[in-house]
Amino acid sequence: MTLVAFALVLWGFGWWLNTRLAEGPRSGTRAIRLAIPLIFGATILVVWELVVRGLEVPLVILPAPSLIAARVAGSLPILWADFVQTFVKGALSGYLIGCGAAFLMAVAVDRSEFLRLGLLPVGNFVAALPIVGTAPILVMWFGFDWQSKAAVVVVMVFFPMLVNTVAGLRETTAMQRDLMETYAASYWQSFFKLRLPAAMPFIFNGLKISTTLALIGAIVAEFFGSPTLGMGFRISTSVGQLALDMVWAEIVVAALAGTLFYGLVALIEHHVTFWHPSQRR
């Protein structure tokens, strides 16, 4: 019980510290902006640890963070193999194919007003559907290995990317288009010099949404069948064996992978669309 009491005290102390920092004179600085969420996160982890130990919560309900950390450290080869199978082979290849195909499709659609008018509502509609549901079908078609996961990812990222790119390619003002007209610019000249750069913020929006979707697709598709490898496979089998520390270890990997993937795309976005008001510092 003392541990739980200690956890409560610690929680109070963390909150007090953050309040001091947030309402202090230097609260706007970068260091403080970074420190506060980190202190908050660390407090949660420590409180979690203490409560689990204090109340002797069984492993099958909630493992302590230290146990999860030990599991991560002790299973690096397995986690790495799962990561390669699910993220590199499944999610990343599907992401590249899906986003690439959607981009080319958007460019093709953009030439026809009629097609764009028809495809945009359909694309928006499909983008809101539970597309992960296609996983059992695609697993049936492409087998248990990563190809079927990549296929699920392709289907998942295609429509959000298509809709964003098509909308982005329309994102020019009448004046900008008239300017190109007075130069008698060809279709591709105005495409590469005006419409494509102007579409970049939208394209990156699609790319960012797709990073998360790709990982979701690859993991969930493994729930419908996979080789004895992969993050989704490991999660579902470890849940079955009640090895929750392993499940959490995979979730830590998935969280890291998702955040880094998103962060990488956001970083590239910052370099490409530095001119956009939302990116200026």
């Binding site: 004046m175 008239d178 007209e181 008698a184 970049m200």
Partner: peptide, 19 residues
Amino acid sequence: ARRKRAYGYVFQAAGLYPW
């Protein structure tokens, strides 16, 4: 004349490309 690039056009707003 447009195809021969006979004129320069200046619009109400500068309309410079921000990138």
